[in-house]
Amino acid sequence: MRLSELTKPVQDHAYAFLDEASKRELRRKILKGICIPGYQVPYASREVPMARGWGTGGLQVTLTLVAPHSTVKVIDQGADDSVNAANIRRFIARVAAAKTTTDACEATLIQSRHRIPEERLLEGQVLILQVPEPEPLRGVETSSAAAAELHADADYGMMWLKLYEQMVRYKRIIQGASYPVLVGNRYIMSPSPIPRWDVPMLHQAAHLTILSAGREKRLYCVPPYTEVRPLEFDDVPYQIENVDGMVCFRTGATHKFMNELPQEDGSSLFELSDSGYGEKILTETPLGETYYDSEGRFYHDGYLRQ
């Protein structure tokens, strides 16, 4: 018997690029994250063949979970054909030989930057959000060691104060994307820079959400059917972006999150931010249930106060 007969042919990398030790670490950290909803779990975060800050955290989770029978959707700002989404999708397909799709209902794994699809995700689907800054307290506490202590003590006074100060100065909370949420009535979490429109979609969701920051080396999870509440005062309800009167110029859709397209005459056109959803409307593909109906009503009655 020869040694060469016992070994496998040389490969440039393992299946789905990451070596098995890295994948095992990630699976363990994901399980921990699922067990402690909203808690930031540090992980080694190995370098991958993509620049840090370009979705390496999401990519490591996707590469850990992907299998040859997976169907993967990758979006950036809601768009499947955004250049970086296209690049990530190309890489996943190349190293994992998985099927890819633009249909949110068809995907088993959805890696996304800054958006959640408009169609409701269902049990068994996994949403992987890319996260630039996992620490919701960074704005009020720059030291991550000190922030970890605040989380341990659930000492969130400074976050409330920050929102209160915005109220005093602007008569409303001016936080745009990355609106802080309380998960499972315990940890304040950054939902990643998704618009306020998307934040309610995490609440009591049927799907699993994994949020992963490669550069900051932290991941955290929202398991299915978990309470996710944006920070709001009793007398100041949480406000999603106002999309009243915006009509998608491609599909005629209303009451969905829109991209604003400035026109030369000073006006603006609007188009659906969720390009996969828009494509389904245009090709008359049967649509899934959406989080917001065509009148803008959110599917959990009473979750959004007036």
Binding site: R52, G53, W54, R172, Q175, G176, P193, R215
Partner: peptide, 28 residues
């Protein structure tokens, strides 16, 4: 790797987050 990557990531589109802030500003 982290510093350079994050710096160049600002070239990526950010129009969703920008739109979200813009909406709040117009409201104000």
């Amino acid at each position: 790797v982290e510093a350079s990557g994050f710096c160049i990531h600002f070239k990526l589109p950010h129009y969703v987050t920008f739109q979200s802030s813009l909406e709040a500003m117009r409201d104000v």
